[in-house]
Design a binder for these strands. Sequence first.
RNA 1: GCCCGGGUGGCGGAAUGGUAGACGCAGAGGUCUCAAACACCUCCGGUGCAAGCCGUGCGGGUUCGAGUCCCGCCCCGGGCACCA
Length: 695
Amino acid sequence: MNWDPVDMTVLANEQVIDGKGWRSGAEVERRELTQWFFRISDFSEELLDALDGLKDWPEKVRLMQANWIGKSRGIEVPFHLTAPVHGHDSLICYSTRPDTLRGATFLAISADHPLARALADADPKVAAFAAECRKVGTSEEALEKAEKLGMDTGLFARHPIYPEKKLPVWIGNFVLMEYGTGALYGCPSHDQRDLDFARKYDLPVINAFNMPGEVNQIGTEALIPAKDVTVDYVDHFTGIKLATGYEAIEASIDWMEARGLGTGQTRYRLRDWGVSRQRYWGCPIPVVHCATCGVVAEKKANLPVELPYDVSFDQPGNPLDRHPTWRDVPCPNCGAPAKRETDTMDTFVDSSWYFARFTAPHAKTPTDKAEVDYWMNVDQYIGGIEHAILHLLYSRFFARAMNISGHLPKKAVEPFNALFTQGMVTHETYATRSKDGRPVWHTPDDVIRTSEGATLKDGTQVEIGPVIKMSKSKKNVVDPMDIIARYGADTARWFVMSDSPPERDVEWTAAGADATQKHLARVWRLASEIAEGGDPAQDEALLKAAHRAIADVTAGIEGFAFNKAVAKLYEFTNAFAKSGASAATKRAAMRILAQLMSPMVPHLAEEVWRIAGGEGLVASAPWPKADPAMLAEDTVTLPIQINGKRRAEISVPKDMPAAEVEKIVLADEAVAKALAGATPKKLIVVPGRIVNVVL
RNA sequence: GCCCGGGUGGCGGAAUGGUAGACGCAGAGGUCUCAAACACCUCCGGUGCAAGCCGUGCGGGUUCGAGUCCCGCCCCGGGCACCA
């Protein structure tokens, strides 16, 4: 945990700025606490495998989750110390690249490794270095970006394959106790981090392989080809010469296992889910600590344990720790005075199953069997991309756990059938400064923005900040109610849908809302002004446009491409406005337009539907179906390219044979001119698409 | 640092490897009007009198043809396990 030694409190990663506490400014330390975990790691393989079945999830989200779970094939190799130290006679190193063992030139252990701790107890210099290591925050980002530091322990271990080689043992701040075994062997030639470390501390660099036909001199860049690339191994212990990384890794594991030098392992990067929070806001952990019985689960009859209401937040730390009447309870087992667990659960716990609770929000039990059976799964889940990993992975885990505990049916272990990740709405930020220099944020409503800058209404200058996602804390929010109040809900909805694809971030602007209203007024006018008479010869063209619109708008809506659906509605409206078709056909076309618009502008659509002669409500009319016969085109326009550049175009019947198209192309003026009597080298006709003449 | 996205006119954006810029906004010109508003029409990537040339973040490559595929970069955003 991040520990603020001045405020005596645990800090979130977000509250650690440049290694210092956000309030106290004190240097933050990494501390270990006894904590509660959910054993999500038991589900690593299952959560990974099941990703393949999530057909209606974005590929990128499945990829991110797969990488997060991080399945890897590797080996545990004991390196024997030249002499036992503090009861340790070997260091077990984990590596995913056992094929590079030849290049191992040092060992590195985490500052939290048992051996490092034993050394620290005995040597203040090691203790000081370990303390230095712990000053780096707990986030993976902080650890990765921190300068790589090491301390030579003076110990040596023998190389398991080349026992004459003695490798120095270092403590490294980049070695994580949480991953692998907390110890690794450094192979600088084929790992950038190891190489940086080796160059810094002047450790040897030995190639385990070269690119075929080369002898690679390693400078400051490690040689790291992809694992499916064939490389040339140097004196490999298995006898392998040319092999891919994958082949050599498997051969190396087999070879090591056969000689009892190591054990093949399948590991996952996914760590258990630490749910303990030293805070008030979170679900209490229903556990009591008893001096005689130990850790005891609260009785079912006493569940749920509720948070106390009379709490004060006037000092840092967890108010539950300072709340005796809530904290001090009898042991559920023996009845002796005992203490409640005062850690609460991560609020991700709540978001991991709220959708299941929503199926029976008043049930006395977490879920109601009949209701979850009926309502689950979620057909379409919509959320921001920032939830791609944590929330969505925890929910998948939780659903499995709830299935095992009988709270969810088997069908709901993947709770979200389809996922759509929408982008974020962003806006500039506006700030003035308080007396002590801290920013005071202002909402866009209170700011007068010109091309030169921005001021408050009283003329005070305002700093313009970056365009970032709308958030209450930065006050860069715009209330959609303002647009609704000014233009009505139909215009507001159409406007919001019309421009940006929903998966993309959008910088909010109200510019264009006026134009949207004009367009909707135009539709209303077109519907009201359908005059009797008209030319039946134009009916077919209008109906074709209508069916084209049905097909395109439907595809747009189903594909979450609302902006494209709106564009097609504009096209159809324009075609309608130009059409001189008969009144009956125009009314039929207008009814189709009303239906297609109804998801976005339901109120207007009902009115238009009515005046165009629609029966009942447009909302209850069945969605129109495009007639394939109406979508077919008889002639197509083919662009003609000469050497890949568009030079002319011809209009031909849709299924004209390629040979006939060729004749027409060769007779074309522009082509004849370019050819100047010669025959083309190549003539490519892509039916219905394009023609390319290669000279 | 690592993983995942994205980068196309003045702007939002469109484009199964096949006419780059659909559709909309903004802008320019015009018709109507005493005038304006509304509405309607035309133009609208850059450059050039024109033919043409250039153009989808940058540099290479594959292909008859690349915004789209491949390799190497740059920039922006999301995530990195205690922001949720």
